Computed example of a mutant assay.
Amino acid sequence: MKQIKIALCAALATAMLSSCKKEDSSPSTGKGNSNPSTGNVTLQFENVVSNSPLRLGTEASNATPYTSNGQIIKFKQLKYVISNIVLIKEDGSKVPYHTEDLEKGATVIDASDANSLSYVLSEIPVGNYKGIEFGLGVKKELNNLKLQERFPNFYRLTGAFNDPDKLMHWEWANGYRFTKIEGWYGSENKAISIHTGSAFKGTKTDANTWELNSDRDAFRYITLDFPAVLSVGEAQRKVVLTADLDKLINGTNKITLEGNIPTVHHLTNMFPFVNNIGGNQNINGEKIVILEINSTNPATNLDQATFDKKGMFSVKNIE
């Protein structure tokens, strides 16, 4: 009887070991496994003016002067919204990253906050990628402050109401500011303030009448190729993106900072700046042509001669 018990225990032990080995040999997925199906990719943003790092100043006296389009320009604040991120695989197929969710797929890049310059895309499918697309601003379907209950964290991220200088909501319309640029220009250090975002039409005192004017959509879609294949796997990868603020006034549109231009917060005057920093591509890959107010004729001074899919952005390298 004792021998039978020993044999039975040995058989059970063998069966258990066999079962464990069989389970261990099956494919595994997820982070931390030996054969992950996803990996993380960090987007690292570097803000520059031409070939020099962008440095902010609290006052004109301590801000770094840059020369752009033959004019002196200094920066006090730079903030911009990145959303609708899509990675492009080597075969041309696209992997959207929470493109319908501002909570998980959008962020604010703030040149004064080093932590904001790194944005992690988590659980990206393993594979080889050749490029990236993303939006500068918020696409019209989501550009609505009434959706704050759906996207409370993003609403708070863009809504520093106790500090108007940091606020990324329009104070006069139902939508987000897409970019916010403050500083000084010229030898006299005159103030410059450029805020861009989609313009709305309706009765100013009645938010229920506000709707996006399709001829005033400031959302821009950026398309960038990687300098080499980005292989996503177990190791975390990094894409270093450069935003060149020289393009603000020295892009396809050459802008002179005189007259009424230094304060640009809405409507026609913003779009030369919008097209310089964001290009003129919409989310469908089509060229954007801005129309003059109350006109069906293209405003040639606002329409870029070339089809710019990059604006101020480029890929510096991948790591």
Rank of each mutant, 00 (worst) to 15 (best):
M1R: 12
Q3W: 01
I6Q: 02
I6W: 00
A7I: 05
L12V: 02
L17S: 12
E23H: 14
P27I: 02
T29V: 13
N35I: 06
P36H: 04
G39T: 03
L43N: 02
F45K: 08
F45C: 07
N47Q: 15
P53Y: 07
L56F: 03
T64G: 11
S68K: 04
G70C: 09
Q71A: 06
I72T: 12
F75D: 02
K79M: 12
K79T: 07
I82S: 04
N84G: 08
V86S: 02
I88D: 03
E90G: 06
E90K: 09
G92A: 03
Y97G: 06
D101R: 00
L102D: 07
L102V: 04
I109G: 04
S112A: 13
D113C: 07
I124S: 01
I124T: 02
N128G: 07
K130R: 09
K130D: 07
L147F: 04
P164Y: 13
K166F: 11
W170K: 13
E182Q: 14
G183C: 00
G186C: 01
K190L: 10
K204R: 15
K204V: 13
W210V: 06
L212W: 15
N213M: 03
S214C: 10
S214Q: 15
D217H: 09
F226M: 00
A228E: 10
Q236H: 08
K238C: 04
V239F: 06
V239M: 03
T242R: 12
L245M: 10
K254C: 05
N260L: 15
T263W: 14
M270Y: 05
F273V: 05
N275L: 10
E286C: 08
E292H: 13
T296A: 12
D303P: 10
A305K: 15
A305Y: 14
K316H: 10
